[in-house]
Structures are given as structure tokens and as C-alpha cells.
Design a protein around this nucleic acid. Sequence first.
DNA 1: CAGTATCCACCGGGATACTG
DNA 2: CAGTATCCCGGTGGATACTG
Lengths: 121, 121
Amino acid sequence: MHKDMTYDEYRHEVKEGILTEAGNCPVTPLLLMLQGKWKFQILYELFIQDPIRFGELKKNINGITNTMLASSLRELEKDGLVSRMQFNEIPPRVEYSLTEKGQALLPVFYEMTKWGFQYIP
Amino acid sequence: MHKDMTYDEYRHEVKEGILTEAGNCPVTPLLLMLQGKWKFQILYELFIQDPIRFGELKKNINGITNTMLASSLRELEKDGLVSRMQFNEIPPRVEYSLTEKGQALLPVFYEMTKWGFQYIP
DNA sequence: CAGTATCCACCGGGATACTG
DNA sequence: CAGTATCCCGGTGGATACTG
């Protein structure tokens, strides 16, 4: 198994149970990182606008509270998907960006979107 | 936007905010379907072995209880990702399979796995 | 074997108020 | 503006016992 495996190689290894035999599912950490009601939408907003300020995120994500936005961003930052840039100005300004690791999730979003367009009426 | 869009088309539309302007995020329903602690692993086991019996699933998924396995399977079935085949035998036998809709999630798993191999140490 | 039926603990997440 | 500090509710999911 290698990071450049083709889709056919992947499908074959899944069928043979090779990935699980290794004992370490490579998908679990990502699932944990995306866990939580708002993580996905925050990342999605960052794909649209990067960098983006705290207030912009809050305005764009309908229904999110300060508390949840702040805590979600802190977790995404801890997981290395998002970086935080603080400017020491008055009034304060903080900008959030995707890291390379975070940007690399776009192909995952792409496949999910294709699936959605095909199977969700 | 169409289901056969290329990755570059997708990236462009995201950047332009076209998908959100439409108001209907095509990823949300999928995220809801995969919500829950065990859904992903159940689907993964089905990719490895299909069809698979209730007891096999329970044996392969470490720590899952009867309750959670049964309720998760019912939800996956309701969402059209998994189908349930009941044989009226003694002792009872029930086999679970991925539907076409469920099988079509493999490319999503593939991208997540590639990401994992590249970014998870 | 393949589930239900209950009961219950925990914590994710909402609401509100406050602050550097 | 960009957050914390509390408080609290509801629902997810765990444990256990039971059944066609």
C-alpha cells in the first residue's frame, strides 16, 4: 500500500481485506477530525474564501454560535487542517486559512459531491 | 453543475461559491447518512465482504453492541445504502449487502484513504 | 442466530451573558 | 471584533436482560 495507489489497486486491497489486516485503518483519524456538527461546513467555507475572518465565517454559516465556531476552529487547528493568523490591531482581526493538509481534502469533497449529485434527488 | 463534472470544474465552482449560492449543499445528506459512531465501519466491512451476516459484522467490528449494530443497519437500509435479505430458516439467517448507491461510495473511501496515507503518520 | 426492550450515563452542542 | 465563561438540555450510544 502506498499513497499513490490507483483506484483499482485500492479496490483490490479492500476486497482482499489487506487494509484491515494491517490493523490500522487510515480513514479513522480523518473521520475523527471531521466529527462534530460544523466541521465540514467550516472547511467548505474556507474552500470558498481563504483567508476568512471569524466574523465572516459566523455570518456565512447559518445558526452557528460563537462557542461552537471557536471550539471547532480550535480543534481543526489542533488537527493541522486550519491555521490561525492573529493581527494585533484594534479592533482585533483574526484570519483563518486552510493548511496544505486541509486543502488536500478537496478531492474528498469532490467525490462526495459527485455522489450526492448522482444519488440525492 | 452536473454529475459528470471534472475535478477542475468542481474546484472552479467551489471557488466561485456557485454550489452554495444554489442553496442546496449536495454533501449534507451524505453526511447525515454517515452520522453515528459505527456507520462508516459497517460500510467498510461490507466493502470487504458482501454479502455478510449480522453475526459476522458483529464479530468483525470491535466493541459494537447488538443494539447499535441493528439500529445502524436499519438506518443504512432506510437511506438506501444497504439491503437486507432475510432467509426463513432455523436458526435464522440474515444477510446484508451494499446497494448500488452504497457501492458508489467506494471512490469517497478511496480519496479519504489516499489522504490518510499522505497526511497521517 | 439475529435481533428487541429497557434503562441510564455522558457529553455534544445550544443559549445567554460577559470581556480584552 | 473575536472570542470566554457558565449553565443546561436532549439525544447518542453503552449495558444488560430477554425472545422468536
